[in-house]
Amino acid sequence: MDFSIVIPAKNEEQGLAIVLPRLRELYPENEILVVDDGSQDATVEVCRAHGVMVVPHPYSKGNGAAIKTGARAATGEYLVFMDADGQHDPADISRLIGELENGYDMVIGARSGIASQASMARWGANTFYNRFASWMVNRRIDDLTSGFRAVKRSRFLNFLYLLPNGFSYPTTSTMAFFRAGYSVGFIPIKVAERIGKSHINLLRDGVRFFLIIFKIGTLYSPLKVYFPLAVLMFGLGLLNYLISSFVSGGARFTNMSTLLMLSGMVVFLIGLLSEQLTNLQYREAEDEH
Score class of each variant (00 low, 15 high):
264 G>D: 00
56 P>E: 02
164 P>H: 10
260 L>Q: 09
215 K>G: 12
277 L>Q: 06
6 V>K: 00
149 R>M: 15
171 T>H: 12
24 R>Q: 08
21 P>Q: 08
13 E>T: 01
85 D>N: 04
67 I>N: 04
176 A>C: 10
133 A>V: 12
190 K>S: 10
134 S>H: 07
74 A>T: 05
86 G>A: 01
262 L>T: 15
35 V>T: 07
187 I>A: 08
60 S>Q: 15
163 L>F: 11
51 G>Y: 03
189 I>P: 03
105 D>T: 10
154 S>C: 08
214 F>T: 00
36 D>S: 01
156 F>H: 12
30 N>L: 08
10 K>D: 09
62 G>F: 02
118 A>W: 06
57 H>I: 01
90 P>T: 04
185 G>P: 07
138 N>M: 15
81 F>C: 06
248 S>K: 15
19 V>I: 14
138 N>Y: 14
147 G>D: 04
236 L>F: 10
104 Y>E: 10
172 T>V: 15
144 L>R: 09
71 A>F: 09
223 L>M: 13
101 E>V: 12
260 L>N: 08
61 K>I: 13
233 M>Q: 13
194 R>H: 07
248 S>V: 13
66 A>Q: 03
282 Y>A: 00
88 H>L: 13
287 D>P: 03
275 E>R: 00
164 P>L: 08
59 Y>A: 14
182 Y>N: 03
102 N>R: 15
181 G>A: 01
167 F>S: 14
284 E>P: 04
164 P>W: 06
5 I>P: 06
36 D>R: 01
143 D>Y: 01
194 R>W: 06
112 S>V: 02
198 S>C: 01
207 V>L: 13
142 D>T: 02
230 A>R: 06
286 E>F: 10
159 F>R: 06
213 I>K: 07
6 V>L: 07
280 L>C: 02
219 L>M: 10
72 R>E: 11
140 R>V: 12
210 F>N: 11
199 H>Q: 12
25 E>Q: 14
144 L>Q: 12
24 R>N: 11
16 L>E: 08
187 I>V: 09
237 G>M: 09
100 L>F: 02
267 V>Q: 04
187 I>S: 05
18 I>T: 13
81 F>H: 01
197 K>V: 15
156 F>M: 14
250 G>E: 14
52 V>E: 05
247 V>L: 12
174 T>W: 10
249 G>I: 05
71 A>D: 04
259 L>S: 07
195 I>M: 13
203 L>M: 12
101 E>I: 02
124 G>L: 13
71 A>M: 10
219 L>A: 04
106 M>Q: 07
